[in-house]
């Protein structure tokens, strides 16, 4: 059965991509704002809930000795999820470009 977080929502996608380097909550939001050219600005409750959820599923983990603010980074499992999503999106992109569709016709 498909995991309940898949396909990744835009929020989850950006958070996993941002956490390829260790960051604390607020820094994740700032990085995502830059990565998305200002189109995705996460709110506090959404970010807290998403971090909780990703951590619970073992896709991100807290970095040890990170001081007052908890810092997270992606896990191997999380990276595998990103890889899977990348393949899914690449396939969709290829459909956009009409390569595979043309072969069928």
């Amino acid at each position: 059965m498909k995991h309940k977080l898949l396909p990744l929502s835009e929020t989850m996608h950006y958070i996993l991509l941002a956490l390829r380097e260790p960051l604390h909550g607020y820094a994740v939001m700032q990085k995502i704002e830059k990565m998305s050219n200002g189109t995705v600005i996460l709110a506090a409750g959404t970010l807290y809930g998403a971090i909780e959820n990703l951590n619970k599923h073992g896709w991100i983990e807290p970095v040890e000795n990170s001081g007052r603010k908890k810092t997270y980074r992606i896990t191997t499992e999380g990276s595998a999820v990103l890889k899977m999503e990348q393949e899914r999106l690449l396939h969709i992109l290829s459909l956009y470009e009409g390569r595979e569709a043309n072969e069928e016709v």
């Binding site: 929502s9 929020t11 709110a43 506090a44 959404t46």
Partner: peptide
């Protein structure tokens, strides 16, 4: 929660998190 109005006034920014609230 309270804060000064600065245009970013929501605590949930996507549909999924609003649904789980």
């Amino acid at each position: 929660w309270q804060k000064e109005d600065n245009g970013q006034n929501e605590i949930f920014s996507d549909r999924q998190s609003r649904a789980s609230y």
